[in-house]
């Protein structure tokens, strides 16, 4: 890990760390923990703000029971998993190829240029990625169909069809996050000691053997971290999909965050939406634990 062992620091009072931490921690308590507790309480209530006359009575676990027996909830979790399993292999293969291209010696200037341009997709406002996606995948005047035309496949109603819409959001996600995987792998590759790589180059000319026996051991930690991080990101994914499809057509692109947002802010069943949010939170905590386990193995 990057961090050096903390130097034993004597000569500060027992309460000194507290005073330095207090501002940040109290801010996070205010905007993070307090709302979470509020959501937890709300998840045990019947809470529909379009019907204030009903009041907000406590109804025990029935929101959770409704969520867990709600087919749509499971479908949207399934769609989210399917999305993860669709985009991730592509991002890993493309990302690793790009990283190897950038790691290969020679062509310094072009390499720097390619490396810098990788940052552009990552910085693009997620909502704007959705807007661009709607233009590119437009049925009548989109450039995606123009491209298909030139290779002899007829026009395709991307955003109007179930598989088309799913493919379109997957492609935009692959565009935005492949650079992340590439830069991540590149950092892993740069950990391979130069002498070892040189020695291996003299032994074998096979790129594949090089990757498998020399570079892969250094890439595995990156890969694990990447699998976990991307799963959290897909559970968070909202902006781009909301702008491009709003979860449709039908429920083709109804990812979990989109679904919860709809239950909360279109149907206004905040009790039910809170129960869903708490379940999502539990899932996130499990993922974070896993990430820490992988990342800070030596430290904790």
């Amino acid at each position: 890990m990057a961090q050096s062992k903390a130097v034993p620091n004597r000569g500060y009072g027992r309460w000194t760390p507290f005073w330095f931490l207090a501002p940040a921690v109290s801010a996070l308590l205010l905007v993070g923990i307090y709302p979470t507790i509020f959501a937890l309480v709300t998840s045990f209530r019947q809470y529909n703000i379009t019907r204030p006359r009903d009041g907000y009575p406590f109804i025990g676990f029935s929101n959770y029971a409704s969520v867990l027996t709600d087919g749509t909830f499971w479908t949207s979790l399934g769609t989210t998993a399917q999305f993860y399993l669709t985009v991730l292999p592509v991002q890993i293969v493309l990302g690793l190829s790009i990283a190897l291209l950038l790691h290969k010696p020679g062509l310094g200037l072009l390499k720097s240029l390619a490396r810098v341009t990788l940052v552009v997709p990552l910085a693009t406002t997620y909502a704007v990625v959705g807007l661009i996606g709607r233009l590119i995948f437009n049925r009548d005047f989109g450039v995606a169909n123009q491209f298909l035309d030139t290779i002899g496949i007829g026009g395709f109603d991307w955003l109007g069809s179930t598989s088309g819409a799913f493919a379109a959001i997957a492609i935009m996600d692959i565009w935005q996050w492949t650079p992340f995987c590439a830069l991540f792998f590149l950092a892993g590759l740069s950990m391979v000691p130069g002498e070892i790589e040189e020695a291996a180059r003299l032994e074998t000319s096979s790129k594949l053997a090089m990757l498998r026996y020399v570079q892969l051991p250094y890439l595995l930690p990156s890969l694990t971290a990447l699998l976990i991080l991307r799963s959290a990101d897909v559970l968070k994914l909202f902006d781009m999909v909301f702008v491009m499809t709003r979860g449709g057509p039908g429920s083709a692109t109804d990812l979990i965050s989109i679904y919860i947002q709809r239950v909360g802010f279109r149907v206004f069943d905040l009790g039910m939406a809170s129960a869903q949010a708490i379940l999502l939170l539990i899932l996130t905590i499990v993922i974070s634990r896993l990430y820490i386990r992988v990342l800070y193995r030596e430290n904790y």
């Binding site: 905007v31 709300t42 949010a277 996130t284």
Partner: peptide, 23 residues
């Protein structure tokens, strides 16, 4: 504390958006 900071990086905004909207 570390763990808490990292979890916040992972958290879907929709989890907090609901209660913060009500508050």
């Amino acid at each position: 504390l570390w763990f808490w900071f990292i979890s916040n990086r992972m958290l879907s905004p929709i989890v907090l958006a609901l209660p913060i909207y009500l508050l």
